[in-house]
Write a protein that binds this DNA or RNA. Structure first.
Lengths: 353, 353
DNA sequence: CGATTCCATGGAACCGATTCCATGGATGAG
DNA sequence: CTCATCCATGGAATCGGTTCCATGGAATCG
């Protein structure tokens, strides 16, 4: 029944206090604070002094309640612990900051229910716009965004049937390069650790792999494809499954960096030497991939650019525009993990024992 | 002059619309929505139906303007791209979510001005509380938090002279273990890549190193210490400087994971074999450190626990409590990068050529 | 059966800013 | 010198919720 009055009550300084201290009306104080030109130098000075003296911080709630602008952007990523999304969050945050916006970061943890929960919150917070790397098929709250006309752009991923501006990567080019490169080294059985087919990037990268395999006349054995979930553990399982085949692949391509990390861990555990026993290429260029021995070959795309473009796109939508989607390129970077030519017979199945 | 009316105007559904549609007063509608028990089953039902039909999302601004609670916590980290802080953000976010709070994430980029800018914003957003890994000496906006009585806790780092609850790591124990372990391997000249002495963790870890060196009777040569800035590039410079000494160290301890990353990169570039030519131990246990060949020895501390405890502490402060600060343990994990015994004479200075 | 209590409800004030509108004083033109 | 113009200003309405207060009807009790 008793109130928690343990803490010193926050002495809430309002614009009324400022106005009183400055000897002007609240209207004038507000005009000074929001940079309205219809103010005299005298009152500007007096208000500024009062603000400093009282340490006044305008209440953003009250402000945006009336003005319907919050100068806040919601960013919903799939997994902050994934270095790619951490870098993306950083890039978006820096770009937004440059335009005077603050980021409200949500983390979906690769789960649709958590995404929808955050979207609800972002809507309630009346963010000016939302940048989202979407989960699921767009049946849930995402559709609600469209209906309400909340400025939204997709980043990295898209959702079929939902027409919103997006910034994505053309993974096809990089994957084609990677497969050709591996074929050049003499590999004919290239294993693929795929992402979930419910996610656009998972589908697109898998299709690119399939087409490249066919174009180069390599083995289409369906057992060479393992379907993971874009998280590290599934990369480990993928390697385990592929090495358990009667005819294991001699090279492996992993569709994102966490799965590549899991793959590396499992290859180490099984004593398979990367580069010599097994070629490995990862999608996503994570800084430390270059520090592995041998350094990992990667398919690289610019996350800084992706973040910057996403913010630009969103600001255009907020301004009432309908910008075109942007597709960024991807590029193979060859390092030691895939540059040892393959001599037939060097890889043995785990089954042999 | 013309308005940007390109987008369909958001049809703002308010609680008044809901009340009208449900045939009750706004007061009743509000009570139903906020779970006030003083409502009849009948009106609860009618309001719920109206909310669903109109797709109503309460305006969080208006709500918190009156109730002065936002169910929002500000989290200010030093650098999201640092895996440690990404993991921390994730841990904090999950813990907060479990208590019905949402995280507003700010990124100081290891810079005090950017930190202060975010703090201003967080104050204006009237977050219920702030968790901050602080920059600087507390001369700026941080002091303002105290004055205004905004619930705040420190995480990972503290600021001298500012008395707030905190969750930190006792780095002393792990560092002592590391130095003893290296001494056991026969190392007498242990290099140290230190963090900035303006940051509490930088100071504490450096002091622990100094004390451990003295306790074990190892070389106190001041040239063995390189002062970095907790970012990767300074780890590289540190290694370069240490190897340039007339008598280079035979082992190196790096005070955080980005600097350790930079150190690894530079050792590779210089062709120094980690583990055999140079022992290496890093503070912070990052997942992929175990994937390096040789795997990196680390001083580990639990970031999940740190995040969870920080949220717990903050919720106590918000509830008017004055909880005790929490200090978490650190522990050495020995891996291959430091387990080869040192034979005198195996390390040569870069100067030799 | 009358008085008291209880409780769901409607209506209004309120949170702290922005913004519209009317006003009064200074300035400039005729 | 008078009238129109301009502009900084004060005051009030407003944004969309929450919460206090008064009320009326049902339930409870002696």
């Amino acid at each position: 029944m008793d109130e928690h009055e343990g803490v010193a009550r926050m002495t809430t300084v309002t614009i009324r206090d400022v106005a009183a201290a400055a000897g002007v009306s609240v209207g004038t104080a507000s005009r000074v604070l929001s940079g309205n030109p219809a103010t005299s130098a005298a009152s500007r000075e007096r208000v500024a002094a009062a603000v400093a003296r009282l340490d006044f911080h305008p209440n953003a709630q009250a402000r945006s309640l009336r003005s319907t602008r919050t100068r806040t952007i919601g960013l919903l990523v799939s997994d902050v612990r994934n270095q790619f999304f951490a870098d993306l969050a950083h890039a978006v945050e820096q770009a937004a900051l440059a335009h005077g916006y603050v980021i409200l970061l949500g983390n979906a943890n690769e789960r649709e229910d958590q995404q929808d929960r955050y979207l609800d919150t972002l809507i309630s917070q009346r963010v000016d716009g939302i940048i989202v790397a979407p989960q699921g098929d767009g049946s849930g709250v995402i559709r609600s965004l469209l209906r309400r006309g909340i400025p939204t752009v997709f980043v990295d991923r898209t959702v079929d049937g939902i027409d919103l501006p997006s910034v994505t990567t053309d993974s096809g080019h990089g994957i084609r390069q990677a497969v050709e490169h591996l074929a050049d080294q003499g590999h004919t059985r290239i294993g693929y650790i795929a992402g979930p087919q419910a996610i656009s990037t998972g589908r697109e990268r898998f299709n690119a792999y399939t087409r490249a395999i066919e174009a180069n006349g390599l083995s289409r054995d369906p057992a060479l494809v393992y379907f993971g979930d874009f998280q590290a553990a599934s990369g480990s399982s993928g390697v385990h499954a592929l090495l358990n085949l009667e005819q294991p692949p001699t090279a492996i391509l992993a569709a994102d960096s966490p799965m590549a990390t899991g793959a590396v861990a499992m290859l180490h555990r099984l004593g398979v030497r990367i580069g010599t026993d097994m070629a490995l290429v990862a999608f996503d260029d994570i800084e430390w991939f270059a520090l592995l021995q041998p350094a990992l070959s990667v398919i690289s795309h610019s996350v800084e650019k992706m973040g910057r473009e996403a913010v630009d796109l969103l600001l255009q939508v907020i301004d009432g525009g309908a910008p075109e989607s942007i597709v960024l390129p991807s590029e193979l970077i060859v390092r030691a993990s895939s540059s040892t030519p393959h001599r037939p017979g060097s890889v043995s199945s785990l089954r042999k024992n």
